[in-house]
Amino acid sequence: MQYCGDFRTSYEKDAVVFQTPFIKVCMALFLAGLLALPYLLKGEFMWVALQIVIASIGAVGLNILTGFTGQISLGQGAFFGVGAYTSAYITAKMGLSFWLGIPAAGLMTAMAGMVFGIPSLRLKGLYLAIATLASQFILEWIFIRWEPVTGGSYGINVPRPSIGGYVFDSDSSFYYIVLAIAVAMILFATNLVRTKTGRAFMAVRDHYISAEIMGISLYKYRLLSFGISSFYAGVAGALYGHSLKFVSSEQFGIGVSIVYLAMIIIGGLGSIVGSIFGAVFMILLPKILSLATEMVAADFPSIARLAISFEQGVFGLIIVLFLIFEPDGLAHRWKLIKAYWKLYPFSY
């Protein structure tokens, strides 16, 4: 139970991750629910859950860069690809273990991210967005043309991970691996934003000239932010590749970058919880749309046909409506709902 008013008397208390025992219990229940998920969901829905967890990693990564450091990146999709191809090359072509492939994918992507983040030292806002857009197209082109490594337009078949003799072949067993990695990485991100580094990121975002005057090295923290964010993207991309068992260049187009940006904007910029909300929303949305189309398809085939070609349009429309009517994202709405129930029924 949290009382009305704020009783925190030290900075340490203010920075605690779980503020009250009640929240700890809630988080434990939530985690238990996630662990039980494979027993509740079947087939296609398990696949959706798996994709949501993977997307959460990528969205949290992008939020570190865009939400916390204020550097707009339109290249997340390509960084995703760098991770996926690295892990695919290591596991499928070199025959090494998945457990080596994932960290290697993260590190490789972090390096690529830092290289393409170099323009951020001089550029910001719009110019940086355009520079990352260019890196998206350049990387995409490399994916298609560098055939010895990427398999060109044929792609690469990727194995699922295994320990000893046990292969994590089903979606539900692979889900546990992904979940473990995701929980670790999201906890790391939650802690990151409480540390000196995270605060430096936010200072750079809020007013970079002031931040520099306060002794924060812009170069160091902007590049670091690119590196960390790309590490997340790389791991998420690698997991995505392993979940599909196949990697090809079409999976990492500009559309993916847009989906990820949409996730963090719909979820809430500069909020870890928001990134996860956004990931859930953006992965569920096409699923719900296609389910709805299927239901209508039996009765009104012409509407269904129109709806299929308009799926991207609905997606765009939702982005536009969200930005106009809920610019602070789902995380903000979530906060309002929580505040409402905390004081219910005496809201004043």
Binding site: T66, I72, L126, A129, I258, L261, A262, I265, L269, S309, F310, E311, Q312, G313, F315, G316, L317, I318, I319, V320, L323, I324, P327
Partner: peptide
């Protein structure tokens, strides 16, 4: 970033 996203959303709508 919101303005960039809103025009991207708009472009998706027009394209489809």
């Amino acid at each position: 970033i919101s303005i960039i996203m809103v025009t991207i959303g708009l472009s998706l709508v027009m394209r489809s």
